[in-house]
Design a protein around this nucleic acid. Structure first.
Lengths: 337, 337
DNA sequence: TGTTTTTACGCAAACGTTTTCGCTACCGTA
DNA sequence: TACGGTAGCGAAAACGTTTGCGTAAAAACA
């Protein structure tokens, strides 16, 4: 009376278990009458197919692994939600792992998922420092990277055009009259952040203004980091009229530091972010930012992965989606000097 | 070339595959020299045990299923992060599913996880309307509920003392001088929300003030819902000096509506939430709220589940954790009338 | 009615492990 | 020398499916 298996059903129905299997899988080579009878008995006995046993013989699990730096991050949790829902529609389940911004852990959970025989892996990499490791790993398992631009690496990824987005943001601030714009939060260990900074530099060059960058030496872009960077910056007199942040989370930290210092946004200082996480829209300072189309990123990534699972020998592909400006009210126009 | 299995290793090492298995599992009945030799060969050949095959024979997957209403919700994503990290430390992986606030979907993914042969399920239920369904399901699989108080149901759950928390919140507002407090966002389809409302009513009775409740007829507590409820409420003149929200997300919606209406918080109106989601701390209006200890909830839930997996015949247990007041600056003291 | 084709189903292998049981060889003791 | 005990290892079953192949009965055809 434990769990009921195919064999149990077969015995009760008086058929071989091959027949039961075929009846359920909708195989054509089976009589209509026996099919109905078998299915009825399955329901009566409360039979549920054992996915593990099926995976064993089918050599695929219908599970895809998802590695994120931290679920506890609005951008990634939105992404995860989209991925899970779409994956389920495609007949897949998601096994989710945190890499906690740690390249070693990232590597470990990757191997773990390989051992689990997931059909493929979607991952938001920690950063560029582990690209070679990622490359060798991606060789043993269909993998697509998301968010992080792998540049010249021959890997599958889907990303937003970070450079264009940040360039657009800079130009927007310029169009409002800002000439002294601080770029806050540049990081060296992430290709994404490198590309974003490029967008800022490109715009500066094009608009003929002086670049002004405050780097982030930590490994991640968090509210806390944004707060600390801004706080230190605000300690001394500064001349910037606008701050452009490498990520929304950083910008939120800046808001906090500015508030404590009595600096009003946007009256005293304009502020922009990047990502358009859901909480960036919150009042009273709702952030002007650059949107990453999260649903499209998720769908593209999964489509790409599923395609790669089906045809592993297909060449690597990249998808670059367009970011878009989201104008809210953290920036104001100022008179040119 | 293809994937390397136990048999391949055994052939190369010139031993039976039972020996390889024992060498890796640390079985004592094996010679120290052969163990080392076998392990060395495993590494050289890049052997990774097949978790699916292992699950097949061991009759357990070391996977636990997690069903949340929506990952894309700060409270749940924080919870999920804690759960994943702790679970991995315990040797388990997480299979995450969204129920999307839909009882039918909730039921469907539960069955799906049962078919996957997960070792147990942790779930944040949609609401109380499907308690009987949940009960019959929980019978086929070790399950613990989290966040939602299942009351008199003989099920495993871990929750915060919602009633005490909300009572404490009400009393805090009272202590600041508030006598006309609007309770915003009561819901009927969730035991959690019923209990929270109870806390409010209890306090009102005890403090001898008139309860004043604005119900939420939708199925969930979102920023959007909070915004709409508050917006409608603010259309007409109102006399409340404070609003106590059933959830932080609702309170954030209230902030938005108040801001648009020119109502200042806390100067014109005091505001409280419940949950202490990470974004509730954001300036300039950082929310005074009631904290749910998310890490402790996660750890307790997993411990409870693991225990139940080991000893399925053990009686059901409940754990109620204590909430705590988090005082920030969305409330101010007013003179009594 | 005899032959061929088709339909419907059963048999058994295979997937990659773990584990029980049993066997051999060796050691120690009498 | 003989015997009990033990350490180290192999053979094989088992887990619950899917599926290729074989075959008997039914259907179609001459």
């Amino acid at each position: 009376m434990g769990i009921v298996t195919l064999k149990d059903v077969a015995r009760v129905a008086g058929v071989s278990y091959a027949t039961v299997s075929r009846a359920l899988s909708g195989s054509p080579e089976i009589g209509e009458s026996t099919r109905k009878r078998v299915i009825k008995i399955c329901e009566e006995m409360g039979y549920t197919p054992n996915a593990v046993a099926r995976s064993m013989v089918m050599k695929r699990t219908n599970i895809i692994g998802l590695i994120v730096t931290s679920i506890d991050n609005p951008f990634m949790s939105e992404m995860t939600a989209h991925l899970e829902i779409y994956a389920r529609q495609c007949g897949y389940n998601l096994m989710v792992c945190n890499s906690s911004y740690d390249p070693a852990l990232e590597k470990e959970v990757f191997s773990l998922l390989v051992g689990r025989k997931v059909d493929g892996i979607i991952m938001i990499p920690v950063g560029s420092e582990s690209y070679d490791a990622l490359k060798t790993q991606a060789a043993q398992m269909p993998t697509v990277f998301i968010g992080e631009n792998m540049m010249d690496l021959p890997e599958n990824y889907v990303s937003v055009d970070n450079t264009a987005g940040m360039q657009q943001a800079t130009e927007y601030l310029y169009s409002l009259g800002h000439r002294n714009i601080l770029y806050l939060g540049a990081r060296d260990n992430s290709m994404t952040h490198k590309l974003r900074a490029d967008g800022y530099y490109n715009a500066c060059k094009k608009l003929n203004i002086e670049p002004n960058v405050l780097r982030n030496s930590s490994a991640r872009s968090s509210v806390q980091v944004g707060y600390e960077l801004a706080k230190a910056h605000f300690e001394q007199p500064f001349s910037e009229t606008a701050i452009l942040c490498a990520a929304d989370t950083l910008a939120i930290g800046v808001i906090q530091a500015a508030y404590e210092k009595g600096i009003r946004i946007p009256e005293d200082l304009s502020l922009m972010g990047f990502d358009n996480i859901s909480f960036s829209a919150l009042p009273p300072i709702s952030l002007t930012t650059v949107n990453q189309p999260k649903l499209e990123l998720a769908v593209s990534a999964l489509d790409m992965l599923l395609n790669r699972i089906k045809r592993p020998e297909t060449p690597h592909t990249k998808t670059i989606l367009s970011p878009s400006l989201v104008i809210r009210n953290s920036c104001r126009a100022i008179g040119n000097n």
